[in-house]
Each structure stands twice: as structure tokens, then as C-alpha cells.
């Protein structure tokens, strides 16, 4: 049985700097894998590479058995990989509802004539898009529905923006969901709530999830496996308990004992 996503010997360079080198990685259907590492370790770059936003210098990315290296980002999304952004990048002047509706672009097909002639197919598709959007937003309880549907995204609170970003990724109907620091900047209550929801994303929605996260409690609570990156190199992987006691990992985060004493 092959992996859902498999990455072999991935290397990314930015003008001489190796942001990632020799990275091997895989996720299986239904797993939740966390990627952790100190700031600047190359975690976001890793997501960028998978989604086609940066071009790998070497290596291969295989999704459902086919190589997706070199595809355009929209093609990657079309194949079933969706992501959120670390620094929340919504469409601020579009409404909450529109943000979710537009994310279904690659799953729908109507163009100019359907809209102008208001064909039955067009109307049906619009209704489906709307229904699916409300369904996705309903995942977050009452936080993004009701009167909020028609509010522009820029008025949302910070936590709601993060939720909306996840909802937008869900709306592309992916198989693999890439979450870049989903709870960053949230308060403890919101974090606990979202941690639960991430679990539900797997059990209820059937997404496979790769998550970058700095909050170790969240990582512990949801992940099946943890991969640790440092300076673009994978330095450890395994269960949370294995990784959190690994001396290399502790060193990567806290620095060499000798340095600290010096």
C-alpha cells in the first residue's frame, strides 16, 4: 500500500541558502502528522514546496502515486491538497461566505454564459456552492454563520480569521490538509477548542492532516507522528513521546549545553 503523500530527498535553496535539504517524508491516509522545529527551520518552506509555490532544486513529491513536482499551485489544489497560511491570508474585502464560495472554484465549472443566461445548471451549481459553504462554516459552530456570513473578512476577530482560513481550505474539498500554525495567537480556550476540531477534521471529514505547530500541547494531543526539522534537515521523527525526549531535539530547541554554560 503506497503512501498518500511521499517526499523523497527534497531540496529547496534560496540563493545559496539551503532552506531544506535531503528531506524524506510521508503521510498515510487518515494520519495526523505534526512538523515542528525552531523558527526558520524550513517548515513553511516545506508546505510551499508541496503546494507548488516554490520550485524544488532536487527531489520528488508524490501524491497518490503520481509526481506533482513542477505543477502549478492551482493544479496541486485541484488534485486534493489544501493549505492555510501562517500569517492568515484571507480575501479581506470579500464576505465570509464569498471567501468560502470562491475556494470551491476548482470543484465547479460554470463560466460566462451560464452566469449571463442564468441557466438551470448555473443556478443549481450556485445553490450547491452556497450549501457546501454553509456546511463547512457550520463546522465551527455559531462562530462564522448567521449575520457573519455577509460580513467582510477584515472585520473578523483574529481567532475567527484563523477559523475562516481553515474553513476555506476545507472548502476546496481536499484529501490532504496542510495547516500552518493553526492555533498561533489564540488564547488557551480557543486553542483547546480548535485542538478538538482538528481531531474532528479527521474523524468526521476524513481529511489527512499535516500540521506545523509550535504549541506542544496541541502537538501532543492530536498527532500520530511528529517530524522535527532543524536548519532544513529532519533530525528526528516518531511519536510525540519519542521525539520530545530525543536529545537532538532538545538541543535544537535549547542550544548546546556547552553554549548555554558559556
Amino acid at each position: 500500500m503506497s503512501h498518500l503523500l511521499e517526499i523523497r530527498n527534497l531540496k529547496i535553496t534560496f540563493g545559496g541558502l539551503d532552506a531544506l535539504s535531503g528531506l524524506d517524508f510521508h503521510v498515510d491516509e487518515g494520519e495526523i502528522v505534526s512538523v515542528i522545529g525552531p523558527n526558520g527551520a524550513g517548515k513553511t518552506t516545506f508546505f510551499n514546496a508541496i503546494t507548488g509555490m516554490v520550485e524544488p532544486a532536487d527531489g520528488d513529491i508524490i501524491f497518490e502515486g503520481d509526481s506533482i513536482r513542477g505543477l502549478e499551485p492551482h493544479q496541486v489544489t485541484g488534485l486534493g491538497i489544501a493549505r492555510t497560511f501562517q500569517n492568515v491570508r484571507l480575501f479581506p474585502n470579500m464576505t465570509v461566505l464569498e471567501n468560502i464560495m470562491v475556494a470551491q472554484h476548482c470543484r465547479t465549472s460554470q463560466l460566462v454564459f451560464g452566469a449571463l443566461l442564468q441557466t438551470r445548471a448555473f443556478k443549481r451549481e450556485e445553490e450547491e456552492i452556497r450549501a457546501r459553504a454553509e456546511n463547512v462554516l457550520g463546522f465551527f459552530g455559531s462562530r462564522l454563520i448567521g449575520y457573519r456570513l455577509e460580513q467582510p473578512a477584515f472585520v473578523l476577530s483574529y481567532a475567527n480569521r484563523r477559523r475562516l482560513e481553515i474553513a476555506r481550505a476545507m472548502a476546496t474539498q481536499p484529501r490532504l490538509l496542510l495547516l500552518d500554525e493553526p492555533v498561533a495567537g489564540m488564547n488557551p480556550m480557543e486553542t483547546a477548542e480548535l485542538t478538538q476540531l482538528i481531531g474532528k477534521l479527521r474523524t468526521e471529514w476524513g481529511f489527512t492532516i499535516v500540521m506545523i505547530e509550535h504549541d506542544m500541547r496541541v502537538v501532543r494531543d492530536v498527532s500520530d507522528r511528529v517530524v522535527v526539522l532543524d536548519h532544513g534537515i529532519p533530525i528526528a521523527h516518531g511519536s510525540y513521546d519519542e521525539v520530545s525526549t530525543n536529545p537532538d531535539v532538545i538541543e535544537a530547541y535549547l542550544g548546546r549545553p556547552a553554549e548555554r554554560h558559556a
Binding site: T51, M53, E72, P73, H74, T77, G78, A82, R83, F85, R89, F91, P92, N93, M94, V102, A103, H105, C106, R107, R168, T172
Partner: peptide, 11 residues
Amino acid sequence: EDEQVAEAMGI
């Protein structure tokens, strides 16, 4: 609004 993100959302 954001061309790069639009592309990443499948457009």
C-alpha cells in the same frame, strides 16, 4: 485581493 492565495485556492 491576493493573487498568490487565489492561485493556492485552486484558481
